[in-house]
Amino acid sequence: MSETILSLDDVHVSFDSLNGKVHAVRGVSFDLHYGETLALVGESGSGKSVTCRSIIRLLSKNASIDDGSILYEGKNILAKSQREMRSIRGKEISIIFQDPMTSLNPTMRVSKQIALPMIHHLHLSKHEAMKRAIELLKRVGIPNSEVRYKDYPHQFSGGQRQRIVIAIALACNPKLLIADEPTTALDVTIQAQIIELMKDIQKKNGTSIIFITHDLGVVAKVADRVAVMYAGKIVEIGTAEEIFYLPQHPYTWGLLQSVPTADEADEELYAIPGAPPDLIHPSKGDAFYSRNPYALEADRYYEPPYFQLSPTHFAATWLLDERAPKVEPPPSIQRRYATFYKKHGGKP
């Protein structure tokens, strides 16, 4: 129903390295709607950050976007010059990078770093921009912002730097906000405060958000839809409800099982067995094959296509093929299914 602000179609990104070509993103497709929050979750190294950096064309020198298309408001991002990209970045599309220190200038006062994009893109006066910078620092929860705005990045704690980066990203009221682990360095109370702030701004301005996080609790709180990545691909995508209560891909099952629940004893935490896949020589079948307790013979040789489960829910696993044997998901996942059917009725 709602219109699309961003559309990725079969995007492939690779890096040249001494050891060979690293296929970091291998055919990622998704649409993002106006005013929507899409959470990107998945294994460390699965290509979440690289996917996001492709959208704003800020990849390292040894990277190339080999195939696919990225449309922002219908315009082809991949055909734009770096100059055109510079005027889009920071103004229409903002990104909060995963390593806050790398996106702050260590020799510039933080107030100036927040004010500059407002002077540049919104043509505010210096005085006006400075006033708003202090206001933003307050909104992201920096105590004594009237005094501390003059400090340099190294004078702040890890989480405070992260919040300064968030303030910079929000400064120009972007249409699209890409947030790469924005709250990872924050304690839960400030995290909650930042999420409330982002939601607030989203409601007011209709901002679209891509939210990368490892914290499935945060996903549950922010996401309209969720995409689960593994080895450079989206293995499952759906509404938050579908991913949390009707997950179909064994990797998604593994992720959900790893979440520590409130009242378990000190038994070992569930961790997905095995090592992450080799992205220099990706396997020809399903990349999750060797770690998948539910793997079928077919997974070894053939890449699973997307199976559609609802207008919004897709999963790439051969388990959904009609020829596949019926498998029982792990008990904690079955409990999630039960929660869903209890709420909506329908098959147990």
């Binding site: 460390s44 995963q98 682990e181 360095a185 490892h214 992720l255 961790a271």
Partner: peptide, 9 residues
């Protein structure tokens, strides 16, 4: 904090 839940585990 920078790790996904499975690797955190």
């Amino acid at each position: 904090s920078a790790l996904d839940v499975s690797i955190q585990a």
